[in-house]
Design a protein around this nucleic acid. Structure first.
Length: 157
DNA sequence: TAGGCCATCTGGTCCT
DNA sequence: AGGACCAGATGGCCTA
């Protein structure tokens, strides 16, 4: 495992620097390898954490949901997907405001756990020190390339 | 200022 | 029936 670690260390640098994802401006010189800044101090992360449902009063969320629905009901947005007049036979599920709010809370929780998984994946993929943390799509793409790279490495040793 | 990214809301569909 | 999942829409924030 140690030997493999050394091998991985040297090849990882090539791997990471070969990545298209790594075509960042040269204002980020290739210095000591560091993980992407996942600390809450990074601006984007800060915003995310602040906006997360867990740092916000649930009541706030419900209130904003209420406000939004009051404003949005009747907007074209609600017609675009709900335009099923020709398929009226499909029974439509009627939900109460309370049920809708509960569903919103569940959806926020679901998205929160999804983002936790993304954060975990970010910590697993090799990156250099950038000010900018990987986006979700970048994380997925990097992970795919990384897996392919490691697979090749295993097959060729 | 445009474009990228993200959080959130929402309605539809699937599954238990 | 209700929860999970999904995709579309929208608005806010940030960066080049």
């Amino acid at each position: 495992m140690e030997m493999q670690g050394c091998l991985v260390n040297s090849t990882l640098i090539n791997f990471v620097s070969d990545m298209n994802l790594m075509d960042f401006p040269q204002k980020y010189p290739l210095g000591p390898k560091q993980q992407v800044d996942d600390t809450p101090s990074s601006p984007s992360n800060q915003r995310r954490l602040n906006d997360s449902p867990w740092s916000r009063d649930v009541e706030d969320g419900l209130l904003s949901a209420q406000l939004r629905s009051e404003h949005l009901i009747g907007s074209p947005r609600f017609c675009s997907r709900g335009n099923h007049s020709h398929t009226q036979s499909k029974r439509r599920r009627i939900i109460t405001v309370v049920q809708r709010q509960a569903a919103n809370v569940r959806e926020r929780k679901r998205m929160f756990s999804l983002n936790e998984a993304f954060d975990e994946l970010r910590r697993k993929v090799p990156t250099f020190a950038y000010e900018k943390r990987l986006s979700r799509i970048e994380t997925l793409r990097l992970a795919m390339v990384y897996i392919s790279f490691m697979t090749d490495l295993l097959e060729n040793t």
